[in-house]
């Protein structure tokens, strides 16, 4: 993947927001790839976690926001506990989701979930899904 990096592509506001919401210093990332290596969801992601980290570092907002990676992340924390730099990637993923959710855009629409699916779900599935995927 070739990506262009310049003053024009760097979205400072985006970087600041992710820093602020996540509370993490993701610039410490040294691109070792441990996160991607241990991610149980990686095969379903369009951009691996390691790349999300570098893209975020370079302020490439559109690429990060339009990726489905943060939405596929199940917050299992496998990456966070293994990161040799001590970055909690799950918090970075949360910040990326929040940037969309806080515009009142839902990833899952509660009212659109079918009654059959609702019927069988344990409450914690609903609560956690709404927490992660609705604004």
């Amino acid at each position: 993947m070739t990506i262009e990096i310049s003053d024009k592509t760097y979205d400072e506001e985006f970087v600041k927001k992710v820093e602020e919401i996540s509370g993490e210093n993701f610039h410490k990332c040294m691109q070792c790839g441990t996160c991607s290596g241990g991610c149980p969801m990686i095969e379903h992601m369009d951009i691996p976690p390691r790349q999300i980290m570098i893209l975020t570092h370079f302020g490439l907002k559109d690429k990060v926001i339009s990726s489905k990676t943060a939405w596929i992340c199940a917050t299992c924390n496998a990456c966070s506990v293994r990161c040799p730099r001590g970055i909690e990637l799950t918090k970075v993923m949360e910040a990326i989701r929040q940037l969309t959710l806080r515009k009142n855009i839902n990833y899952v629409e509660p009212s659109a979930i079918s009654e059959e699916i609702m019927a069988g779900l344990p409450q914690i599935a609903l609560v956690s899904c709404f927490r992660k995927h609705t604004s």
């Binding site: 509660p110 609702m118 019927a119 609903l126 709404f130």
Partner: peptide, 15 residues
């Protein structure tokens, strides 16, 4: 009288 009847009608409770 299961709670899921309420989820179906009022999913917002779980927010």
């Amino acid at each position: 009288s299961d709670p899921e009847e309420v989820y179906k009608k009022y999913p917002e409770l779980f927010r």
